[in-house]
Design a binder for these strands. Structure first.
Length: 469
RNA sequence: GCGCCUCUAGCUCAACGGCAGAGCAACGGACUCUUAAUCCGCAGGUUUCGGGUUCAAAUCCCGAGGGGCGCACCA
């Protein structure tokens, strides 16, 4: 008999279970329910049988007897993993378990494959990531992590909407990959007969929307970067980017810390977390410190943009890195920071005032033109985002693009290209604007207390299998 | 891309130079209140793949493939 096309479920298992709460052992509620889900355990015992039925709200025991349950012989032979719908009275068994005493039931789908050991589940990491459908049924933590992710994104949207931000969507296919320094994926459009790039950042399009009059915009979406995989990097990942006219990066430090702490409060009920065994307090305000200050704290050296290049190179070599001879003082400082400081910053801390040299889209600092009004929030030793007062001057932007193009010509495949469309947009006038990006996967990792980005992505990137089985 | 580790039944794991095994799942049977039910029975394998050493290889060596971690790159 083929499975039915639909099943009239009257209650979730969690709802059904509430009718059994006040019953004593062996009592019936007199309330009939229809529940559906997957059979996760089966305990046939002669003329009676028990099974655990699970779905997204939880699980409830099914109780069947040869006297009262239709197709009892087939019920007893259900396989673990089969989907069924069952109808019957909510009762409490003699041994005290709230159950649905099954009258009628119907097989909704049968599981030809096993979901792993019923007690130990599936722990093989490759199976968990490649066959997430198996992992989700076998491992409660996996379900909880993805549910947490969903709530984080939901609350992020709701908070931004409440603050008057407008959600927009910008192209994923870019003629020129821009808005970040990263290697893109290339694809080809057949009828236009041109190469297009999967976006490495939505930044330039979002700022063009600000030029167009969208004063507070945000986009939550997928970015693609053609780089190595690691426990903290997936080639496709999700970010929040938002832009706000008339604001500067100080405003966005406040916005960032309020948003993250608020989401933690919403989904976990607290800003006091434990991450990988260490306490982490996300309550506002977060510490603000400049890159130069943090370098001084960590190295004991007064390093800044005026430090002789040879001295910066020496420190970097000492830290175990090989400086490119073409790097200027800004790039060298940032390299030293990333090598010696960042991973030890538990945070949260806003690392402020990056060199303008490594911030081609950020506005120069109002008190030092060699610096940019840019900050990176660092939590648990890694960047959670990136933000700045946006560069609004089309001439300066052109000069920065040209500098990037030079570096690109010199072989830096991650350097930006000159984007004439963006420059033209700036010439129409971008008001003072602040923008920020936030790594959604990284945020979920923090809140879910997991150390591998793959845990927070339903289907993380893996090398494709050549053949199944 | 480089280095280290890892791969045995559908799942979780043993065997670590000497006949490839267990529990769970599956399959057959017993059992009228179970809780990872229990009990009996049956079946399940080119030990990831390809070479080599050896009387003998899952085990040692070389190579390939998948995966993990670290480094590099980045968010």
């Amino acid at each position: 008999m083929p499975p039915p096309y639909r099943f009239d479920r009257t209650h979730s298992t969690a709802e059904a279970a509430t009718y059994g709460e006040d019953l004593g052992p062996g009592e019936g509620s007199g309330i009939e329910v229809s529940v559906a889900g997957r059979v996760m355990l089966s305990r046939p015992q002669g003329k009676v049988a028990f099974a655990e039925l699970r779905e997204s709200s939880g699980a409830i025991q099914l109780f069947a007897t040869s006297q009262t349950t239709q197709d009892f012989d087939r019920f007893v032979r259900l396989n673990l993993g089969d989907w069924i719908g069952a109808t019957g009275e909510v009762v409490r068994t003699k041994r005290g378990e709230i159950s649905v005493k099954v009258n009628g039931w119907v097989l909704l789908a049968n599981a030809r494959r096993s979901f792993g050991d019923k007690w130990r589940g599936v722990s093989d990491i490759e199976t968990r990531y490649r066959q997430r459908e198996v992992d989700l049924w076998a491992n409660a933590e996996s379900r909880e992590t993805l549910m947490l992710r969903s709530r984080v994104v939901q609350r992020m949207r709701e908070r931004l909407w409440a603050d008057g931000f407008v959600e927009v969507e910008t192209p994923v296919l870019h003629p020129i990959p821009g808005g970040a320094t990263a290697r893109p994926f290339v694809t080809h459009h057949n009828s236009l007969d041109c190469d297009l790039y999967l976006r490495i950042a939505p930044e330039l399009y979002l700022k063009r929307l600000v030029v167009g009059g969208f004063e507070k915009v945000f986009e939550i979406g997928r970015l693609f970067r053609n780089e190595g995989l690691s426990p903290r990097h997936n080639p496709e990942f999700t970010t929040l980017e938002l832009y706000e006219a008339y604001a500067d990066y100080e405003d966005h430090m406040k916005l960032f810390e309020r948003l993250v702490a608020g989401i933690a409060e919403d989904v976990l009920g607290t800003t006091n977390l434990t991450y990988q065994g260490r306490p982490l307090d996300l309550s506002v305000p977060w510490r603000r410190a400049t890159l130069v200050e943090l370098l001084a704290d960590a190295t004991g050296l007064e390093l800044n943009l005026d430090t002789p290049l040879d001295e910066l190179r020496r420190v970097l070599v000492e830290a175990g890195s090989q400086p490119d001879p073409a790097w200027g003082p800004g790039k060298l400082l940032v390299e030293i920071y990333e090598k010696k400081v960042e991973s030890d910053l538990w945070g949260p801390v806003f690392v402020c005032d990056y060199p303008a040299e490594v911030s081609p889209l950020a506005r120069r600092h109002r008190s030092n033109p060699d610096l940019a009004e840019r900050f990176e929030p660092v939590v648990a030793g890694r960047e959670l985002g990136n933000a700045f007062s946006e560069l609004i001057d089309p001439d300066d932007q052109r000069a920065r693009f040209e500098q990037q193009a030079l570096e690109r010509a010199r072989g830096d495949s991650e350097a930006m290209e000159v984007d004439e469309e963006y420059l033209r947009a700036l010439e129409y006038g971008l008001p003072p604007t602040a923008g920020l990006g936030l790594g959604v996967d990284r945020l979920v990792m923090l809140l879910a207390d997991v150390s591998n980005i793959r845990e927070v992505i339903a289907f993380p990137t893996l090398r494709p299998l050549l053949a199944l089985d």
